[in-house]
Simulated assay, not measured.
Amino acid sequence: MKLAVIGANGQAGQAIVAEAVARGHEVTAIVRSSNQSQAQEVLQKDLFALEAADLAGFDAVVSAFGAFTPETFPQHTTSLEHLTAILAGSGTRLLVVGGAGSLYVDESLTTQLYQTPDFPADYFPLAEAMSKGLAALRNVKDVNWTYISPAADFEVAYPKTGDYILAGEVFTVNEAGESKISYADYAIAMVDEVEAAAHPQARISVLGK
């Protein structure tokens, strides 16, 4: 497949590129600075400067875009608004590296994890911003998107196990009562979804076994 990874220099982006390349896919890194990933092709351009022509011909675009300061938090919404606007009606799929804070803690899908009393206060603004981005994405009907939330404990240093648990909208733990996953195993789940296209216009979540 022909894939583009936006934010390919980030930790999640690099892991996703590495997994996709290892499986034989043709990957273009879309980065603002010099490419640090294993992608075979590079487009050096800011996400918000991308045009429809830049993404034409890709089977799927993966957004591993991140914004981690208060002044950039709104970009979790505006980045998805921009990407869906230029992908609208193209047939190119959009897959988004999401967050765990927007997962629900009840089957009625009423309360999100970041809204619970024990959620770390330091992470609340980021989680709230990412939740707003997902809410905006849910309104998009003319792009085949999939949003993939990682486990609550999402760490680049965790080892690659080659396995994961696929879940849905509700916060899930493994048999040990843990919600954790490595970047490498998350990348496996992401590329699996790229290949299978099994969850159109839906949010899924993944965690380690």
Rank of each mutant, 00 (worst) to 15 (best):
A39K: 00
S79K: 05
A64M: 10
D54K: 00
Q40M: 14
L87A: 10
R93Q: 12
H76Y: 13
T77L: 14
L87C: 13
S33P: 03
L103C: 12
A64Y: 05
T110R: 01
A53G: 14
S33E: 13
A56C: 05
E71W: 05
E107T: 12
T78I: 11
F58V: 06
G98F: 00
A64V: 00
D106M: 08
L47G: 02
V42P: 02
T69E: 14
A100K: 08
Q36I: 02
L103V: 08
D59I: 07
L95P: 10
F73D: 07
E26N: 15
F65D: 09
G101W: 09
L95W: 08
A88W: 11
A39C: 02
I30A: 07
E81R: 07
E71Q: 15
L43R: 03
Q44M: 07
A52V: 01
R32A: 02
V96N: 03
L55K: 02
T84H: 11
G89R: 14
D46F: 09
H76L: 10
P74L: 09
A53R: 15
E26M: 15
N35M: 04
Q44T: 06
A53L: 14
L103Y: 04
Q44E: 00
A53K: 12
A60S: 13
G98I: 03
T110N: 02
A88T: 15
F48M: 13
T77H: 14
T72M: 14
A100S: 15
A67I: 06
A60Y: 11
S37A: 06
E51L: 08
L43C: 04
V96L: 13
L95D: 03
A88I: 11
A29P: 04
S34D: 14
E51C: 07
F48T: 01
G89L: 00
F48Y: 06
I30V: 10
S90A: 05
G98C: 05
F65R: 00
V96Q: 03
Q44R: 09
L94H: 05
L109N: 15
N35K: 11
G99K: 04
G57C: 10
A64H: 09
N35C: 10
F58N: 04
T84P: 05
E81K: 05
G89P: 07
A52Q: 14
S102P: 14
D54W: 01
Q75E: 10
A49N: 09
S108I: 10
Q44H: 01
T110P: 05
G66K: 04
F68Y: 12
E26A: 15
A29K: 09
H76Q: 08
L55W: 02
T92P: 12
V31D: 05
A85G: 11
T110S: 15
S108C: 12
T77I: 14
E81P: 06
A60I: 07
L80I: 03
L109K: 13
L109G: 12
I30S: 01
D54T: 00
E41T: 13
V97N: 11
A100P: 02
V31S: 05
E51K: 00
A39N: 08
E107A: 10
F65V: 12
P70E: 10
Q40S: 15
L83I: 01
G98Q: 10
